[in-house]
């Protein structure tokens, strides 16, 4: 009895060290992430810009929902037809154009690399090379592609004209869908290797006996993929989806450094939401208030995706257990 008392005392005493160990993280988080977030949300409800004529800052003064009005409602009075939502739309379009082929190719490669029947011996080398673009500076890659798709004498135009595919060089970066496709391609090219490695690890995590059992039952490779691999891989694929969506919403470096003026050419059709926020806040009239409101919109959309992830990833067994306990308690109460 006395012994258990002392050991209990001990854990309580050492417990306080836990606070010391986690303190730096929470202090830094509060100062450098939480406070800026609150500050941004606060600015969203304020009038704050730089008067270039008087060379002076205006505000921040509280002005309610005025910033949001300009973000949701265009000058013609239509809703969602604003620069903010167009930028958000551009971002989502370019994210989806990269994600759809990315997940398909990654899935195909993951299945190939884990196939025990058709072995790919050099897969170590393939993984190293396919993943490589992921760790190269996005800024450098963007400027490189900017040079490669140069008009009229960039290497791609030279190749296409030399090969006789096109008679005239093509102005890739002055065409909406060509520019969007290039940005999506760069994202795809940088990230499918990463997704492939994650999914490969996922397939390897599936119990081999399941595959064996399916094979003994005479299932074809396609049936095994459809009925064993895919359902068991779903949580990881959804995790990849949400992760990629959240990352994609913040897309900045590539469109910023690839487009000719750095403002999402042509005609702002490749301007992403983060590019727009920074344009609002740091150029011209420096509309910090409106930028704050646009940030809040981005935050809400990001939060939505995170909550979807949390909902999907929630511990279903734990919830079931809780429900069972509650039901049991109810039953006992009823019996009493």
């Amino acid at each position: 009895m006395a012994k258990s008392n002392t050991s209990k005392h001990k854990t309580v005493e050492y417990g306080r060290y836990g606070y010391y160990f986690i303190a730096p993280f929470f202090i830094v988080f509060a100062i450098f992430q939480l406070w800026p977030l609150i500050y941004t949300i606060g600015l969203a409800f304020c009038e704050n810009y730089y008067d270039t004529m008087w060379n002076a800052e205006v505000g921040p003064y509280f002005n309610g929902l005025a910033n949001f009005a300009t973000i949701f409602k265009s000058t013609e009075g239509t809703y969602f037809d604003t620069y903010t939502f167009r930028a958000l739309g551009n971002t989502l379009i370019m994210w989806f154009m990269n994600f759809a082929p990315q997940i398909l190719l990654a899935l195909l490669l993951a299945v190939w690399f884990t196939d025990t029947r058709v072995k790919i011996k050099a897969q170590g080398a393939y993984k190293v090379l396919v993943f490589m673009p992921n760790i190269i500076t996005a800024a450098t890659i963007s400027v490189l592609f900017y040079k490669l798709f140069d008009y009229p004498n960039g290497p791609i135009n030279q190749l296409l004209v030399n090969a006789g595919i096109w008679e005239q060089p093509y102005q890739f970066l002055a065409t909406k869908w060509a520019t969007r496709s290039i940005i999506s391609f760069i994202n795809f090219w940088m990230w499918y290797g990463n997704t492939m490695i994650v999914l490969t690890a996922g397939v390897l995590g599936i119990s081999p006996s399941l595959f064996e059992a399916a094979r003994v039952d005479g299932a074809t490779s396609w049936e095994i993929f459809k009925n064993v691999t895919l359902p068991l891989l779903r949580p990881i694929m959804l995790f990849t989806l949400v992760n990629s969506a959240i990352g994609g919403l913040q897309m900045y470096d590539i469109p910023k450094l690839l487009t000719t003026s750095g403002r999402g050419d042509p005609d702002f059709t490749t301007r992403t939401i983060t590019m727009y926020i920074r344009e609002l806040a740091f150029t011209g009239a420096r509309q910090m208030g409106k930028a704050g409101a646009a940030s809040l919109v981005l935050f809400v959309v990001t939060l939505f995706f995170s909550l979807v992830l949390f909902y999907i990833m929630r511990d279903k067994d734990a919830i079931k257990e809780k429900k069972a306990i509650k039901a049991a308690q109810k039953a006992r109460k009823g019996a009493n």
Binding site: F32, Y39, I41, Y252, M288, S295
Partner: peptide
């Protein structure tokens, strides 16, 4: 504390960059 760390993992720096800059 652990649940909190998991929850904030998904918040990107970009959403608070205006406040961060001014601060």
């Amino acid at each position: 504390a652990w649940a909190f760390i998991m929850a904030i993992m998904m918040i990107p720096v970009q959403v608070s960059s205006i406040g961060f800059f001014r601060f």
